[in-house]
């Protein structure tokens, strides 16, 4: 059964189409990654799914309820956490928990039980009277997530939950997401971090409001780039790049620190050609050339560039 079914969802702001006829399904209990550049339409889609924005056309079923005319029922069954820290800084930890629990109608024993759980996952046991503003970023983030799911929703929407959080806190945060997922909660998460995308059961990528790729990480890597990819490590990265880009057999290039990734148009080209071109013709010391399977980053850059070129034409 699908937790979320999105059908031809479209949102226009005046003449600008932010979300363009998007379709996808999210299975019950999975972690669903929603990727795309800034302004690609991720947040707009999420905001329609949680009932803040009304779609221009199309519809979606969230937990079986239409976002168009059953948004009250949708709201009862979801939790939401945005990139903005969404708790009250001028309330203490427990005051925040009590307030949101109160809004969701939790009281008595249930409240005590959930309060304990939130304090535990946020690592704030015995610190419930601390002012929220004084908590470190990572803890705040976990407290925000704990509070967002205090009513044990079936589906949780996380809109760039880890932006601006340090790597260790990010890792801890993902542990919590996995814990929720194991408990049967469906999670839809948007992110910029492609290492986070690897944790997702399913991924979609949108660009300029359109869905351009879909599948799990493995499928994306194998299905979307057929051509071989070479990873080149050389002395002069920028010079090497310039030289490579002049060659006909070079498709797309991208720099990753000291490395260059080259997608080849011509599968007869091999490592030897690169050494010849850079080292022998141009005198650039090449340390290493290796055929690799594409990373998610390669796939996304490839797909987005392809899509953007198409849009220009």
């Amino acid at each position: 059964m699908n937790a979320i079914e999105v059908n031809n969802l479209t949102k226009e702001f005046g003449k600008f189409t932010a979300v363009d006829n998007v379709n996808f399904n999210v299975k019950q209990g999975e972690i669903f990654g929603f990727l795309g550049a800034n302004g690609a339409g991720k947040s707009t889609t999420i905001r329609m799914l949680i009932g803040i924005l009304e779609p221009t056309s199309g519809d979606a079923l969230v937990s079986g309820y239409s976002i168009k005319n059953q948004s009250d029922l949708v709201k009862k069954n979801i939790g939401y956490m945005s990139q903005k820290f969404s708790l009250y800084n001028d309330l203490t930890v427990v005051e925040n928990i009590r307030f949101f629990a109160g809004i969701y109608g939790l009281d008595g024993k249930k409240y005590e039980e959930r309060k304990k759980w939130v304090l535990k996952v946020a690592n704030l046991e015995n610190m419930e009277n601390v002012m929220t503003s004084s908590l470190p970023g990572g803890i705040k983030q976990r407290l925000a997530l704990g509070t967002a799911v205090i009513h044990e929703p079936k589906i949780v929407f996380l809109d760039e939950p880890t932006s601006g959080v340090d790597p260790i806190s990010r890792r801890n945060f993902w542990d919590l997401i996995n814990e929720l997922s194991e408990g049967g909660t469906t999670i839809l998460v948007t992110t910029h971090y492609l290492d986070e995308a690897e944790f997702c059961n399913d991924i979609i990528l949108i660009n300029a409001g359109k869905l351009i790729a879909q599948g799990n990480a493995k499928a994306l890597k194998t299905n979307y780039i057929k051509n071989p990819i070479l990873e080149i490590e050389s002395d002069r990265v920028v010079d090497s790049l310039e030289i490579l880009e002049k060659e006909k057999w070079v498709g797309e290039t991208s720099i990753f620190g000291n490395y260059i990734h080259v997608i080849l148009n011509d599968s007869t080209i091999n490592e030897q050609h690169i050494y010849q071109l850079l080292q022998e013709k141009n005198g650039i010391a090449v340390k290493r050339v290796k055929k690799i399977t594409p990373t998610l980053e390669d796939v996304f850059i490839h797909l987005i560039e392809k899509d953007s070129k198409k849009n220009v034409q």
């Binding site: 949680i50 803040i52 009250d72 939401y80 903005k84 820290f85 969404s86 708790l87 949101f100 809004i103």
Partner: peptide, 13 residues
């Protein structure tokens, strides 16, 4: 401004 209004709108309030 701080984003809690959005959080409130998502609740069944």
């Amino acid at each position: 401004e701080i984003g809690t209004l959005e959080q409130l709108i998502v609740t069944p309030i």
